[in-house]
């Protein structure tokens, strides 16, 4: 574990998580959630959990983002909060 890289990626995870919740556009929220998943995957690769990291990169970041974007296109992008 290289702690400066670890700390920077952890701050990026926090920023992406807060951004995914705060943004007033559901498509943007879905894309930011994908970025959050990729940052989390980098964090796990640093911590030595490589199998968890590539499962998260393919399933968590890839398939989850596709699901969210498909759901947003079938419903509405509008959100009040």
């Amino acid at each position: 574990m290289i702690w400066p890289v670890d700390l920077i990626i952890m701050v990026l995870v926090m920023i992406c998580g807060i951004g995914a919740i705060m943004v007033r556009d559901l498509l943007g929220a879905g894309i930011l959630f994908g970025a959050y998943s990729f940052m989390m995957c980098l964090l796990w690769a640093i911590m030595g959990a490589v199998d968890v990291a590539f499962t998260e990169a393919s399933v968590g970041a890839g398939v989850s983002t596709v699901f969210l974007v498909a759901a947003v296109f079938r419903t509405s992008r509008r959100t009040k909060d």
């Binding site: 574990m1 998580g17 995914a20 919740i21 559901l26 929220a29 879905g30 959630f33 959050y36 998943s37 989390m40 964090l43 796990w44 911590m47 030595g48 959990a49 968890v52 998260e56 968590g60 989850s64 969210l68 759901a71 947003v72 419903t75 959100t79 009040k80 909060d81």
Partner: peptide, 25 residues
């Protein structure tokens, strides 16, 4: 918003996974 709630649920799930991976490190 329901989609925002679902994103929050997924954030909790990944946080729990982070906890377990931190135990192993």
């Amino acid at each position: 918003n329901l989609v925002k709630k679902i994103i929050g649920m997924n954030i909790v799930q990944t946080a729990v996974i982070l906890f377990y991976v931190s135990i192993a490190a």
